[in-house]
């Protein structure tokens, strides 16, 4: 393993796998270049694969996830999902509505709405019919054990339930890729483990590609691949 050449074969999924997410020589900086966050990142993820991005705070994990989901644009380089460039405005809405789902460390749910209403937001955005949306919600709620909580407002839910709700919402429109930024970072160890178990189970069942930024190596080790980020680069692969 040569640290100066991070683009090693282990960085990539099997050559036979269908690549759904690709980043090529991605650079990103803030404050007019004063803070360089990403310095030429290359990345690929295959359909159905689970990838953990580990690294210290500020190494660029979240920034990379934002670029994957089209929430931000790289200064240089390309990000594509299913072969389509992410940063074109026309692609962005389709991307957010149908291709990727986000789960954040903070659940980012709307407190005045009920669990059900929060989960239905992506379907409203995408114009999915009420019947189909409800059917999908019931199924996901059943999978995540939230059926009895559907009518409850977010303030009434526990931390674990809120994060499971966020997971449901992210998966409502059947995205191909789930981008999770410290999805269990705000939970206690026991709840964290349970939520992560559920996350892996659902992405496996749904055939979703998971790219997860985490500090928790225990959780990261349960992914198909674990990539180490440091100083704005994916430095070296670590076998999961």
């Amino acid at each position: 393993m040569n640290p100066s050449t991070p683009q090693m074969i282990d960085l990539y999924p099997s050559s036979r796998a269908r690549i759904v997410l690709r980043a090529e020589d991605v650079w990103k900086s803030y404050d007019d270049g004063a803070i360089e966050v990403l310095k030429g990142v290359d990345f690929e993820a295959a359909a159905g694969e689970t990838v953990a991005l580990c690294g210290p705070s500020g190494c660029g994990k979240s920034t990379l996830l934002h670029l994957f989901g089209g929430l931000d644009a790289p200064d240089r380089g390309h990000v594509s999902v299913n072969g389509a460039e992410v940063n074109g405005h026309r692609n962005l809405l389709r991307l957010l509505r149908h291709e990727v789902g986000f789960v954040f460390q903070l659940h980012n749910l709307i407190p005045d709405l009920t669990l059900e209403e929060n989960c239905l937001i992506p379907t409203v955005a995408a114009g999915i019919g009420h019947v189909a949306a409800q059917a999908r919600l019931r199924r996901l709620a059943e999978r995540t054990g939230l059926t009895h909580r559907l009518g409850h407002r977010i303030q009434k839910l526990s931390g674990g339930e809120r994060q499971r709700t966020a997971l449901c919402r992210a998966l409502m429109n059947r995205p191909k890729i789930l981008l999770a930024d410290e999805p269990t970072g705000s939970l206690d160890e026991h709840t964290s483990s349970a939520v992560f178990e559920l996350l892996l189970d659902i992405v496996a069942t749904e055939g979703v590609t998971l790219v997860m930024a985490t500090h928790d190596r225990g959780l990261a080790n349960r992914c198909d691949r674990l990539l180490e980020m440091h100083d704005g680069r994916i430095h070296e692969p670590v076998s999961a």
């Binding site: 929430l71 809405l93 509505r97 937001i121 955005a125």
Partner: peptide, 16 residues
């Protein structure tokens, strides 16, 4: 602002 960002992340368009 944060709520609007959440809606954007969940696919809300500028028009919506």
């Amino acid at each position: 602002i944060r709520e609007i960002a959440i809606l954007r992340v969940n696919g809300f368009s500028h028009v919506q």
